[in-house]
Design a protein around this nucleic acid. Sequence first.
DNA 1: TGTACATCAGTGAACGCGCGTTCACTGATGTAC
DNA 2: TGTACATCAGTGAACGCGCGTTCACTGATGTAC
Lengths: 206, 206
Amino acid sequence: MRYSKEHKQETHARIVKKASVRLREKGAHGIGVADLMKEAGLTHGGFYAHFDSREALVIEAFGYAMDRANERWRKMAEEIPAEKRFSTIVETYLTPLHRDDPGHGCAVPALGAEIARESPKTRKAFAAKIEQMIEMMTDQISGVPRKAARKQAIAALTTMMGTLVLSRIAGTGEFSDEILASGREAALGRTAASKPVAKKAKAKPN
Amino acid sequence: MRYSKEHKQETHARIVKKASVRLREKGAHGIGVADLMKEAGLTHGGFYAHFDSREALVIEAFGYAMDRANERWRKMAEEIPAEKRFSTIVETYLTPLHRDDPGHGCAVPALGAEIARESPKTRKAFAAKIEQMIEMMTDQISGVPRKAARKQAIAALTTMMGTLVLSRIAGTGEFSDEILASGREAALGRTAASKPVAKKAKAKPN
DNA sequence: TGTACATCAGTGAACGCGCGTTCACTGATGTAC
DNA sequence: TGTACATCAGTGAACGCGCGTTCACTGATGTAC
């Protein structure tokens, strides 16, 4: 065989990409190395030419999903006015479409709880991506000091992913839609209707 | 052997109780039948005299954890004035203590995402317990129409469990504490400072 | 009251299976001459 | 330019291991007589 120089990287990237979908769908332990390789059109034996271990792939696949998500939100934000960015992200996130397609959705509600139990190495890799996502979200909040915006970004993200998890447990019916709607209102309520976050966190610029 | 009539029920309850701790700690697939039985001081062979399958135990253990939590919150609520109930629950929930001890904490952040991927039977059993928890939480919100209280209860619960998941990914340091604090403020902000929830959901009694 | 038998919660060996990982091998292509 | 060799991404059999589940058995105690 011996392919061109870029071939291995391309294959590697393809494995990561396909794995990131299936892992979000099935969970961090829900699908095996052999099936993951089959997704990429390969056999399991070649796996260790690309990754040190299954865990290494999980880390890469999660990082890939998070990077793509951050990119996507940033690009989407560029194309809309500043004051609508935050609410657009929240509204796009908390839809039945996202709820019903975990494989192509946010990796945090899909894998977060499992990841928190993984090795420190894996957990820290996740934490770093979460931090990036918080920064991205903070950048989309206009009209408040950065410190307050960051608080609001964190609160919005926790509400968003928590809402998605609960709504997925509830399935796809009325109850699930109700959860989605409540989460949407809560995450948005902090900007649109009632400007600042809460109690004594309102003034204090910086 | 042949123990007294209640003996089997007691053993059964002990397995469920111990399992509910370990499953929350290690995840729905993170610990095996043999280890779970060892926790209860038994050998694995006797497992199927108590449960149809491993999955059946997972359902029972989760239900047990949720029932205990609901009981505990209700009892705690009884002993404090109505207007402080909601905030006390939120503040007790979003502590480093709870974050650092998943085994004795809320089962939703620990097992929710995994459960959403389980069989419909398991998922529905979970959904029913979630509904109960929402009702319990709704009962602790005073001064707003029930419909608005329910919305707020759902929003608070999603924020609470989402915050716990994120803070656990972040570990136990500053970043993690920051997430906890942001979640606390957000979940409380909807009552204390800015009374109603948001937009057009304020009036409309019932 | 005393004895023989039935019960059944719990034991521990064994089962089949799928998993992550290893390894000897393949064969198309780049490189050295 | 043509030929021999080296490379190494990918193959597929095999490994050891742990898992959920099954099953023949045990033995203390309840029950029938």
